[in-house]
């Protein structure tokens, strides 16, 4: 393939990474923004979503779309419920004290990951996509006859991959509307601004925290269910989304949802494109160093505003 079409296909793959990353990272971001909790176990909620999707689709016979549809609804709800339970049993008990919370969520990470290893096993398992039609993509060139569209060999994508991008955009739009236009969103934002004042005005802050933590985990799980027909479910798959989400949330400005989405698109796209030209290990080294240096020299993120 020539350079142009190659770059085009890389950006398309990057867009899928970006879409899933945006969902996962926004989950991490609202948890940090509203609760001030750095959830190291976030990647494991992502992994649980994928594993549950495999489990649910393997239970339901018939057309793959049926099982996948059920998984798309049920997996995030179950993962959200597990997260609410973790919040109730652990985080709430230590009063969300920042350093103890990180240590506790590291503990949760191991518990969730290793329990999955004991039950689900060490294999990677595939989930069938609900629909998966290959479509060839056109490419333009300026030949002797002027501008012309061609269909180079290998330049193609699938309907499912396009659907993932569309679905992620829809979900993020709905979340945006919920956060800005509904009473629940208002309560969440009030808690974010000043939890004590919110409590004084009769908002049950503990319930809000439980809901936010569940919602954050459910968003990660949703991203995982969407991507699992393209990747595979594996008990160690939570590591990369966790790292990438951290990068995105930190670069986008801690706790800023809009910044997170912008950064997710930026990082997801460049991750897809960079890994075409660099080895994945080098790309990851650069990414981790980038996070460290952004935190050191621009702690409010590249797009964040300084908080009072």
């Amino acid at each position: 393939m020539e350079f142009g079409p190659h770059l085009f296909i890389a950006s398309l793959e990057g867009a899928i990474t970006a879409a899933v990353l945006a969902l996962t990272a926004v989950g991490l971001s609202i948890v940090f923004g509203i609760m001030r909790v750095v959830n190291v176990a976030h990647g494991e909620f992502f992994m649980l979503g994928a594993v549950l999707a495999w489990w649910i689709t393997s239970l339901i016979a018939g057309h793959p779309a049926l099982g996948f549809g059920v998984a798309l609804v049920a997996a995030p709800i179950v993962v959200g419920a597990i997260a609410v339970l973790c919040n109730r049993l652990v985080l709430n008990k230590i009063n969300y004290e920042p350093e103890r919370t990180i240590v506790a969520t590291i503990g949760l990470l191991y518990v969730i990951q290793q329990t999955t290893l004991m039950t689900f096993g060490p294999e990677a398992r595939p989930v069938e996509a609900p629909f998966n039609k290959r479509i060839a993509l056109p490419w333009f060139e300026f030949g002797e006859s002027g501008f012309a569209l061609t269909w180079p060999w290998g330049l193609s994508t699938t309907t499912y991959k396009l659907a993932v991008i569309v679905a992620a955009i829809l979900i993020l739009l709905i979340l945006w509307l919920v956060l800005t236009r509904t009473k629940i969103g208002l309560i969440m934002r009030a808690t974010q601004l000043d939890s004590e004042m919110a409590q004084a005005h009769g908002i049950a802050v503990n319930k809000v925290y439980a809901m936010v933590f569940g919602l954050g985990a459910a968003l990660a799980a949703l991203g995982a269910v969407l991507v699992v027909p393209i990747q595979q479910a594996h008990y160690l798959m939570g590591g990369d989304p966790l790292l990438l989400s951290f990068i995105v949330v930190i670069i986008g400005g801690l706790g800023s949802v809009l910044g997170t989405v912008v950064a997710a698109v930026l990082i997801g796209m460049s991750d897809g494109i960079i890994s075409v030209f660099f080895t994945p290990t080098l790309a990851k080294i650069l990414a981790t160093l980038l996070v460290a240096f952004v935190l050191i020299f621009k702690p409010d993120g590249l797009f964040g505003r300084r908080r009072e």
């Binding site: 503990g107 969730i112 290793q114």
Partner: peptide, 11 residues
């Protein structure tokens, strides 16, 4: 899955 112990002890 021995790291399960590590996680539980941490929590």
């Amino acid at each position: 899955a021995y790291l399960l112990i590590a996680g539980l002890v941490l929590i």
